[in-house]
Amino acid sequence: MGDLDLSVGYALKKAAAALRAAMDAGLRPLGLSVPQYACLELLGRRPGMSSAELARGAFVTRQSMHAVLLGLEERGLLARAAAAPQGRALPTRLTDAGRDILAEASGIVAAIERRMVAGLSADGQERLLADLAMCTAALDEGGAAA
């Protein structure tokens, strides 16, 4: 692998770890974890998502998402249907309290992201997004390593 300072993967992992730590610290006063915030954010954008869809969107296992949903439901931040309208998936939606805490959490996370990219120009930020999207697409399309 060589020099870690020259490894793109290592640099990405360091950036992801720093972002996660900043988000953990920022969301802690609201009593939210990063997966809980991700769940609220996803439901704010697409009400009615199933647990499996939320797990994929938040990058956690189904089992972890089950615990996240239970915790949020106990706090009155989301509601799930008692019975599935079709199949087995129970659609989930935010409550008014869930929308309120999401608005506050989204502001915190947006400020953290602004701080993270503050050293980049607007063009640099656009380029970073495009480059990360290309990296993701290359791995999604590539399958197993050649």
Score class of each variant (00 low, 15 high):
S51Y: 00
G26Y: 11
D140W: 02
A82T: 08
E126L: 15
R56Y: 10
E126R: 15
G2N: 07
R80G: 14
A58L: 08
A133V: 10
G71L: 04
A138Y: 06
R99Q: 13
H66S: 15
D131W: 06
D100S: 12
A82P: 02
G124M: 02
M116C: 03
A110C: 05
E73G: 13
Q86W: 10
G143I: 06
G2L: 10
D3M: 01
A133K: 09
A15R: 15
E104C: 01
A84P: 05
E141V: 10
G124S: 05
L102N: 09
G107V: 13
R99Y: 02
G71A: 05
S121H: 07
A17D: 14
A130G: 07
V8N: 04
G44C: 02
P85C: 03
R20G: 03
M134V: 10
A16D: 13
L12P: 00
A15F: 08
P29Y: 08
D100N: 04
R62K: 12
A83V: 12
E104Q: 14
Y37G: 14
G142W: 03
A89T: 03
I108E: 00
A81Y: 02
T136A: 15
S106R: 15
L77C: 08
L69C: 07
Q36W: 00
A145C: 01
G119S: 08
A130V: 11
V68C: 06
G2D: 05
K13D: 14
T95W: 03
S106K: 13
G9L: 13
P47M: 07
G2P: 06
S7H: 11
A118C: 03
R115G: 13
L78Y: 02
Q63M: 12
M23I: 05
T136H: 15
K14D: 06
S33Y: 09
E113S: 04
H66K: 14
L12T: 06
S50Q: 06
L78F: 04
G31Y: 07
D5A: 01
T61M: 03
A79K: 12
V60R: 10
R99N: 11
P35H: 05
L12S: 05
D140R: 13
L43W: 09
R75S: 07
E41N: 11
A67M: 11
Y37V: 12
A118L: 04
R114N: 07
Q36T: 00
L94C: 08
T136Y: 15
A130R: 14
L120Q: 07
R127A: 15
T61K: 10
A105V: 06
A17H: 09
A145N: 01
T92N: 01
C135N: 00
A18L: 11
L27A: 10
M23V: 03
M65L: 12
D3K: 03
D5C: 00
T92Y: 00
A55Y: 05
T92I: 11
L102Q: 02
A82R: 14
L139F: 09
L90C: 04
L78N: 09
A103V: 05
A118H: 07
L139T: 02
A110K: 14
G107I: 13
R20S: 13
P35V: 02
V117K: 04
A145M: 03
M23R: 14
A25H: 09
G26Q: 08
